[in-house]
């Protein structure tokens, strides 16, 4: 990021390639509407480009990136009046082929997981996605979302507990 700040466009391309998938899925699984996710995703990167002058070495790029993403999503939820959680409407992709019975079981597992993820309170889902997609530690999640480490830890713990429960059903 520092290299890009100093005019190295290639450095940006490397960063982008590394983070695009995880960030995109973070946004997509947060808002669950593809068109909206694409719009927000693009806006987040535009903010990164605009704000590159404010990036400092102290912050790990991942944390910085997801802080920007967190702010953008928070704005979005605020505008929408923190809409109620609903069940995911997207189809989870079919898992690797095995026997038909096993496949059906695996598919059910995924559907349950997707539904449970969608049903999580926004803050818990965010903590889980930052952990899964951003590969972030509790401390980094706390920094990106502007809460204390204890709060971040309990959000993640609750999220994991509910998702585990969904798989055990």
């Amino acid at each position: 990021m520092l290299a890009y700040r100093q005019g190295d466009t290639g450095a940006f391309e490397t960063l982008y390639a590394r983070h695009k998938g995880p960030l995109y899925r973070f946004v997509l699984r947060s808002v669950r509407e593809r068109g909206l996710a694409e719009e927000l995703y693009q806006e987040i990167w535009m903010k990164v480009i605009e704000a590159r002058g404010r990036y400092t070495v102290q912050a790990k790029f991942t944390t910085w990136l997801y802080t920007i993403a967190h702010h953008r999503l928070t704005d979005h939820w605020r505008k929408r009046g923190l809409r109620a959680v609903d069940i995911a409407d997207h189809d989870p992709p079919a898992p690797a082929a095995d026997g038909p019975e096993r496949r059906a079981q695996a598919r059910q597992d995924l559907e349950r997981l997707a539904a449970a993820l969608a049903a999580l309170p926004a803050a818990q889902r965010e903590a889980f996605l930052l952990h899964e997609e951003g590969g972030m530690s509790v401390a980094e999640i706390a920094a990106a979302t502007g809460v204390g480490e204890e709060a971040a830890k309990s959000r993640l713990r609750y999220a994991l507990a509910k998702l585990r429960e969904a798989l055990d059903d």
Binding site: E13, Y24, D109, L113, K153
Partner: peptide, 28 residues
């Protein structure tokens, strides 16, 4: 609390979506 391989594996099986190439191009 940060580790749950089973949840992680299932989560990953949900899909590895990527942004459409048009958006990549616009951002770059």
């Amino acid at each position: 609390p940060e580790r749950d391989t089973r949840v992680s594996q299932h989560y990953r099986a949900l899909g590895r979506e990527e942004p459409p190439p048009g958006i990549d191009a616009a951002i770059l």
